[in-house]
Amino acid sequence: MRSAEIVVADGMPLVWAARLLGRPVPERVTGADLLWSLSGLAARRGWPVHLLGGPPGAAAGAASTLSRRFPGLRVSGVSAPPYGFDATAEGRARVRREVVAARPRIVFVGLGFPRQDRLADELREDLPDAWFLGCGAAIAFAAGTLPRAPEWMRRAGLEWAFRLACEPRRLTRRYLVNDLPFAARLLTTALAARAAAAR
């Protein structure tokens, strides 16, 4: 994360903690939203994009959806490697060859944290002029293979609950065992810092 050029507040706990600390960020910025806005920019600038990740067929479906929405968008390639491909040097090398051969300017990497970030870091060596965006489930959202939470749930910070209801087997441990304690510690620390500053 420290090597990234840009880091955005993708989770509402980060937005809330920043407010508590008196240093608010303008808004929550998700990979799912950036997929659309950056695809629009790429279409206007003539930059080729590559979609990497998502369940089988999702990258191709997202490419089709984005191309309809943004006429002129150049999708230089799509890759939907099988789960666990990145556990072997051979699997990573195969994907690396695909992406490098496509010569994209923007690569949307939807493999989930931290897998997408590690792979993007490797790919940057071969494509130093490309931008890599870790976008989680954004490719599946764009393809329509996974529903996205309604706008009111996103604004209220409840997108995680919607996602958990849609994919309980995959997300229960991640959200309730890993993320919830982190969010609680983050907000508690921010509250304590705010209280200390007020004294």
Rank of each mutant, 00 (worst) to 15 (best):
M1I: 14
M1Y: 15
A4M: 08
A4W: 07
I6F: 13
I6Y: 13
I6T: 13
I6R: 13
L14P: 01
L14S: 09
L14E: 10
L14N: 10
A18D: 11
R19L: 14
L21G: 12
L21A: 12
P26G: 01
P26C: 01
R28T: 03
R28A: 01
A32V: 00
D33Y: 03
W36R: 10
S37N: 03
L38K: 09
S39C: 10
G40R: 11
L41V: 15
R44A: 15
V49P: 02
H50Q: 06
H50E: 09
H50C: 12
H50I: 03
L51S: 07
L51A: 07
L52V: 02
G54T: 09
G54S: 10
P55N: 15
P55K: 15
A59F: 01
A60T: 11
G61P: 09
G61S: 07
A62L: 06
A63K: 00
S67P: 09
L73V: 08
L73C: 09
R74Y: 09
S76C: 10
V78D: 04
P81K: 05
P82Y: 06
G84L: 11
G84W: 09
A87I: 11
G91N: 10
R92I: 10
A93Y: 04
A93W: 01
V95R: 03
R96I: 00
R97K: 14
R97L: 12
E98R: 09
R103F: 09
R105W: 08
R105E: 12
R105P: 05
R105M: 11
I106H: 05
V109T: 10
V109R: 05
V109D: 04
G110Y: 00
G112V: 05
D117H: 11
R118G: 15
D121H: 12
D126V: 06
L127G: 00
P128C: 02
D129R: 12
D129N: 11
A130M: 03
A130H: 01
W131N: 08
W131P: 08
F132C: 01
F132V: 02
L133R: 00
C135Y: 00
A138Y: 06
I139Y: 02
A142S: 00
G144K: 08
L146R: 12
A149Y: 03
W152M: 11
R154N: 01
L158Q: 02
E159D: 04
E159S: 04
A161E: 07
A165M: 05
A165T: 01
P168S: 07
R169D: 13
R173H: 15
R173I: 08
Y175P: 02
Y175F: 08
L176N: 09
D179R: 08
A184D: 09
R185W: 14
R185L: 15
T188V: 15
A192H: 14
A193P: 10
A193T: 13
R194M: 14
R194V: 13
R194E: 14
A198Y: 13
R199H: 13
R199V: 13
